[in-house]
Measured scan of single mutants.
Amino acid sequence: MTSCHIAEEHIQKVAIFGGTHGNELTGVFLVKHWLENGAEIQRTGLEVKPFITNPRAVKKCTRYIDCDLNRIFDLENLGKKMSEDLPYEVRRAQEINHLFGPKDSEDSYDIIFDLHNTTSNMGCTLILEDSRNNFLIQMFHYIKTSLAPLPCYVYLIEHPSLKYATTRSIAKYPVGIEVGPQPQGVLRADILDQMRKMIKHALDFIHHFNEGKEFPPCAIEVYKIIEKVDYPRDENGEIAAIIHPNLQDQDWKPLHPGDPMFLTLDGKTIPLGGDCTVYPVFVNEAAYYEKKEAFAKTTKLTLNAKSIRCCLH
C-alpha cells in the first residue's frame, strides 16, 4: 500500500463567511444568496454554514464600524470581559468565536472560507496562513488546477512579526479568498463568478477527501510576504508620492531593483532599492491607505505537500 500522510479526520463542519468587511460585496451577495438557497454549497455528509460576519458594517456598506474585524481574533480580544464599552467588532468577534470556535479547541469548525474583495488587480487569490499544512496545500492545488487556465495565486502570510489574527483563524483550516479588482461597494459579475467557482472547487475537494480519495504528493507556487511598504510621506505625515503608473495593476509581476515604484507630484520617480527582485501584491489597495500600506513585497517559492487521505471509520 502506498505510504501517505493521513489527515486527522474527515471534514464535518464548514463555514463560509461574507461581510467580514461590509463594503466587499461579492461575499456579502453570495452568502445572502446561499442563506436563501444553499443547494449549490451542500455536499453529502458535510455541514456547510453561510454566515454574515459583520452585519452592521454590511448594512452601512462600510469596511467596519469601530475597528477591523479581520485583525482582532487574538486571545487578548477574544478574552476581554464582555461589555457595551467594547468596540462593536470586538464584541462581534467574541460572538463569532462562540459560534464557530472556540479558537484553538477541538470544537472549532474544521474549515472557514472568508470571502473578500480587493481594489487591487490580484485576480483569484487564496490566502494561506501555514506553509506546513498538507491538507490546505492539497486543497489549493486542486482549486488552482480546477480553475486553469484562469490564474489563481496563493498568498502566504506566515511571518515572524506580522500577526494578522484573522476572522477565519478560529477554524482548524483557515482559508482566505480574495478576488479583484473590484471597487468597494460595487458588485461585478465576473468577480462574483470567479469567487463562486473557487468555493465550488473547494467544496468538491472536501467531498472527494471525505469519500476516501487519496491525493498524491503535489507542489504549489506561493508568494510569501516579506514586508509592507508605506507611501513616501512629508514631515507632516502626508502622502508625498503615489503608486507609479508602471507599478499600478502589476500585482504578482516581478519588481526589480531600480524599477519605478512611486511618483511625486513634481514628476520624480522613486525606484525600488535593494538588490532583490520582489513580487508586489495589494498594490494601491483602497482599504490600506489608513493602514499606511502602499503594497506588500513578496518572494516566490514552492511548497510541497505529502499525499493525504481521509481516515475512514
Rank of each mutant, 00 (worst) to 15 (best):
T2M: 10
T2H: 12
C4K: 14
H5R: 13
I6K: 14
I6H: 15
I6N: 14
E8M: 15
E9L: 06
H10T: 14
I11C: 08
Q12S: 14
V14D: 02
V14S: 04
A15T: 00
G18N: 05
T20V: 04
H21P: 04
G22F: 07
E24Q: 09
L25D: 15
L25E: 05
T26S: 15
T26D: 04
G27L: 03
G27N: 02
G27E: 03
V28H: 15
F29S: 15
F29Y: 15
L30Y: 01
L30W: 04
L30N: 05
V31P: 05
K32Q: 12
L35Q: 14
L35H: 08
E36M: 09
N37S: 09
A39H: 12
A39V: 10
A39I: 11
A39E: 14
E40K: 06
R43C: 03
R43T: 02
G45D: 08
L46Y: 08
L46C: 09
E47K: 12
V48L: 04
K49H: 12
K49C: 11
P50T: 08
P50K: 00
P50S: 07
F51W: 08
N54H: 08
R56P: 11
A57T: 02
K59D: 12
K60Q: 13
K60I: 09
C61E: 09
T62C: 13
T62E: 13
Y64A: 09
D66S: 09
D66M: 03
C67M: 13
C67T: 14
D68M: 03
I72W: 10
I72C: 15
L75T: 14
N77W: 12
N77Q: 12
L78C: 10
G79L: 11
G79N: 15
K80F: 13
K81T: 14
K81V: 14
M82V: 13
M82W: 13
M82E: 14
S83M: 13
S83C: 12
E84I: 14
D85F: 12
L86R: 10
E89A: 02
E89Q: 05
V90G: 09
R91P: 07
R92I: 11
A93Q: 10
Q94H: 13
E95V: 10
E95Q: 12
E95A: 11
I96D: 07
I96G: 06
H98Q: 14
H98P: 07
L99M: 13
L99D: 09
F100D: 05
K103M: 12
K103N: 11
S108L: 08
Y109I: 07
Y109S: 00
Y109T: 07
I111W: 04
I111S: 02
I112F: 02
I112E: 05
F113M: 07
D114Q: 02
H116A: 08
H116W: 02
N121V: 04
M122K: 04
G123T: 01
L126E: 06
I127F: 11
L128H: 05
E129A: 08
D130S: 07
D130Y: 04
F135V: 04
F135C: 03
I137K: 06
Q138T: 05
M139H: 03
M139G: 02
F140G: 04
I143H: 05
L150Q: 14
L150K: 12
L150R: 11
P151D: 09
C152Q: 05
C152Y: 05
V154C: 08
Y155A: 15
L156W: 09
I157E: 15
I157T: 15
E158I: 03
H159K: 14
P160S: 12
P160C: 09
P160A: 11
P160Q: 12
P160H: 11
L162F: 13
K163Q: 13
K163F: 07
K163S: 12
A165G: 14
A165V: 10
T166A: 13
T167K: 08
T167M: 11
S169T: 10
S169K: 10
I170E: 03
K172D: 01
V175W: 03
G176M: 14
E178V: 15
G180V: 06
G180D: 04
P181H: 04
Q182P: 02
P183F: 05
P183D: 03
G185Q: 05
V186M: 11
V186C: 13
D190M: 00
I191Q: 05
I191P: 00
D193M: 12
Q194K: 15
M195Y: 04
R196T: 02
K197M: 13
I199N: 04
K200Q: 11
K200H: 11
H201T: 07
H201G: 08
D204I: 02
D204E: 00
I206E: 01
H207T: 15
H207R: 11
H208V: 13
F209G: 06
F209I: 01
G212P: 02
F215L: 05
F215G: 00
F215A: 05
P217C: 06
P217A: 11
P217T: 06
P217L: 01
C218L: 02
C218W: 01
A219V: 09
E221F: 06
E221L: 05
Y223S: 05
K224V: 02
I226K: 08
I226M: 12
E227V: 02
D234P: 06
D234G: 09
D234C: 07
N236Y: 10
N236C: 09
N236K: 13
G237A: 03
G237T: 02
I239C: 08
N246S: 13
L247P: 03
L247R: 04
Q248D: 02
D249A: 05
D249Y: 05
Q250C: 09
W252D: 02
K253I: 07
P254D: 01
P254W: 03
P257Q: 01
D259A: 07
M261I: 15
L263K: 07
T264H: 06
L265W: 10
D266I: 00
G267H: 07
T269Q: 07
I270Y: 02
L272W: 10
G274T: 00
G274P: 01
T277I: 11
V281D: 02
V281K: 05
F282M: 11
F282A: 11
V283C: 07
E285Y: 02
E285P: 03
A286T: 08
Y288E: 14
Y289L: 14
K292A: 11
K292V: 08
K292R: 12
E293I: 15
A294F: 03
A294V: 05
F295K: 05
A296I: 08
K297N: 07
K297A: 14
T298W: 00
T299Y: 10
T302E: 08
T302L: 10
T302M: 12
N304Q: 13
N304T: 14
A305P: 04
A305I: 01
K306T: 13
K306F: 07
K306D: 14
S307Q: 10
I308H: 00
C310A: 12
C311F: 10
H313K: 15
